[in-house]
Amino acid sequence: MSAREIAEPYPFVSTDDDATTAALLLAEHQLPALLVVDTDEQPYAIVPGSQLIGQLLPEYALADPPLAAVLDDRHLDDVPEKMAGLTVAEWLPRRRFWTPVVGPDAGVLQIAALMARAHSPLVAVVERDGDRTQLVGAVTAARLMERLIGGS
């Protein structure tokens, strides 16, 4: 079975899009990761939701989890303000995430190995036409697991 056969349409955002809009897309569609494309709609990054959440937390909460345990959630009230006016590119973690990408003819084993190696909940599927790349869709970990263990 090829990537083309198991890829599904997957919502994406551009590096220039509003960060709050991107966060709402992630939440409303219950996505495991944000698929980010550049201004030419070329895959730019796949960032797991957990890493994006980390971008919203105060630095001390990440540096000292026991301290975060004794503080209440009032410290999260400024999250919307923290994101206001940011683009997706500005919101993304400084650490650039490798974008796992396969062509439409990639096999399940190749996709699974790439997903595992990249620690990514999805792999982008792209079709190359000369020097242009078009996003076909994505293979999610859930879809791949379904294929590997024989689900519906």
Rank of each mutant, 00 (worst) to 15 (best):
L109E: 01
A19P: 01
V108T: 01
F12K: 08
L31A: 13
V108I: 03
G54D: 01
D105W: 03
P80H: 10
E59Q: 13
L34I: 10
P104F: 04
V108C: 02
Q110R: 05
K82G: 01
G137D: 06
Q30H: 14
E5D: 08
A142M: 14
L144F: 10
F12I: 09
P104S: 07
A84H: 12
A23T: 02
I53R: 05
G151F: 05
R143K: 06
P11C: 15
A118K: 07
L25Y: 10
L71A: 08
D16E: 15
A69L: 14
L25N: 08
A27I: 05
T21F: 14
A84V: 02
L109A: 00
E28T: 13
L92M: 06
S152Y: 14
V123K: 05
M83V: 09
D73Y: 02
L62A: 03
R74C: 06
D78N: 09
P32V: 11
G49C: 08
L71M: 10
S14E: 13
A68R: 05
R74P: 03
S120P: 09
D77V: 11
E59F: 09
R94C: 02
R74Q: 08
P80Q: 11
P104C: 06
T133W: 11
V47I: 05
P58Q: 03
V108L: 04
H29N: 15
A89Q: 07
L144S: 10
D105M: 04
D64I: 04
G130N: 03
